[in-house]
């Protein structure tokens, strides 16, 4: 019934797809539900609303973004399918990290600012629901071992509240697969990423100040002394995955393990990241669906996609095509669909776009259009239906990106 009520088309100004050169919401009034929430301003890393420290770096090209996105998606799919989990177990036993372990953070474009230490030092951190361990670059860090960043390096020696995690304790043991031996009785950590990027250093604790009124005492994070790869420019990463070492896990006592975020539509607007605020399932305005888990990949938040409609018409895709579940990931750019579902979506979308000239494919995006010369664009609506009937009717920005249908197949049939 909901699908039948969905709009058949969405019409927007062609200019709305442009990123915008000025921040339209430089200091929004953050939503605040109750006294147990901490709300952080969230922005696109490359845009006029980004912290000045992060915005001067050039954005990666579309081609680079899509290539990095494909590596991340392939990694996630391997982990969820079980192959990645086997690699993780093997890596622990061998005390080495295979190059394929981890993910590519080149597509993590959304940042928040928090302060670390006493006195607090501002850190621009990429938010990632697809990983757990948080880290920042720390002094000492030789130029050959750390990438350049706009903020001064965090110096644990100048923080009165910093403590290195000792070896042998529960906190060090909690690192699990991220553990990397001991040095001078300090607990070491390492995170290696699918493209060969990595961070390595000392596991430590310090005060993480989220807002003027919200701080996490004894926050455990990686103090990175050696980084390489596609990490340039950021101060660190905020892991929001499901494992206990993530920010969400560490603050479960204070915030109930609940969090929410809103990714801005374009770089010239802002969103937010809220820790806490657990509300009833009947919260107004929300379409709610069950949170699922994957035993082989416990980091991920998984929902069950059950159908897709285009132009108000449900696609003819067998339910079994969606049976594997859907990872909700802030670090993947383009939604990946099972091949049968993507083929049906693409066909229906193309049928609704015959008024526009097609354009050359762009990397993994194979359904592109030349929209130059149009003042408005009318797209077939796209709605994603989740278990329990929750329906996400996408806005134009969720349908078309880089001039292309912003979906891709998640692999080959039977893969």
């Amino acid at each position: 019934a909901r699908a039948a009520e969905a709009p058949r088309y969405v019409t927007v100004s062609a200019a709305s797809f442009k990123p915008g050169s000025t921040c339209r919401d430089p200091d929004p009034v953050a939503p605040r539900r109750n006294g147990t929430s901490a709300v952080l301003r969230l922005t696109h890393r490359h845009g006029p609303c980004a912290p000045a420290r992060a915005s001067s770096l050039a954005a990666p090209s579309v081609a680079d973004t899509l290539r990095a996105d494909q590596r991340r998606a392939e990694y996630i799919l391997r982990r969820v399918s079980g192959a990645g989990a086997q690699q993780l177990v093997g890596s622990k036993a061998a005390a080495t990290v295979p190059a394929s372990w981890g993910y590519d953070i080149g597509t993590l474009n959304y940042v928040v600012t928090a302060s670390l230490g006493t006195p607090g030092v501002a850190q621009t951190l990429e938010v990632d629901t697809g990983s757990d361990l948080s880290w920042v670059q720390c002094k000492p860090c030789a130029a050959s071992s750390c990438y350049s960043q706009k903020d001064p390096l965090f110096d644990p020696a100048r923080s009165s509240s910093y403590a290195a995690v000792p070896c042998g304790g529960s906190a060090c043991a909690g690192l699990g697969l991220y553990a990397s031996g001991c040095s001078a009785a300090q607990c070491g950590y390492v995170v290696s990423y699918g493209d060969g990027s990595n961070t390595r250093g000392v596991y430590g604790s310090d005060t993480l100040t989220l807002t003027a009124t919200d701080a996490v005492q004894g926050f455990l994070f990686g103090c990175g002394h050696a980084q390489s790869g596609l990490l340039t420019g950021i101060d660190g990463l905020l892991g929001l995955g499901r494992l206990p070492v993530s920010l969400v896990g560490q603050t479960a006592g204070a915030y109930g393990g609940a969090f929410s975020y809103c990714l801005p539509t374009k770089p010239s607007t802002t969103g937010y990241l809220t820790l806490g605020g657990a509300a009833s399932a009947a919260a107004p305005g929300f379409a709610t669906t069950q949170l699922l888990t994957s035993p082989g990949a416990p980091t991920y938040y998984i929902v069950m996609l059950t159908g897709i409609s285009v132009g108000g018409q449900a696609l003819s895709v067998p339910a079994s095509a969606f049976a594997g579940g859907t990872v909700v990931d802030t670090g993947t750019v383009v939604t990946r669909l099972p091949p049968a579902a993507y083929a049906a979506l693409r066909s229906a979308f193309r049928s609704g776009m015959t008024a526009y000239p097609s354009a050359a494919p762009n990397g993994i995006l194979d359904t592109c259009y030349d929209l130059s010369g149009y003042s408005t664009v009318t797209l077939p609506s796209v709605a994603l239906v989740l278990s329990s009937g929750a329906t996400l009717t996408l806005g134009a920005d969720g349908i078309l990106s880089f001039g292309c249908l912003a979906f891709a197949a998640s692999g080959s049939d039977g893969g």
């Binding site: 809103c262 801005p264 383009v334 990946r336 920005d397």
Partner: peptide
């Protein structure tokens, strides 16, 4: 397996509370 990427999450508030995932459109 599918992945819901950040292009499709934009402007939704996504709320995760341990039992469920909620999506609120037009939140930012």
């Amino acid at each position: 397996m599918a992945i819901l990427g950040n292009v499709q999450q934009r402007s939704f508030e996504v709320r995760i509370d341990g039992d469920s995932v909620g999506f609120r459109p037009g939140a930012c």
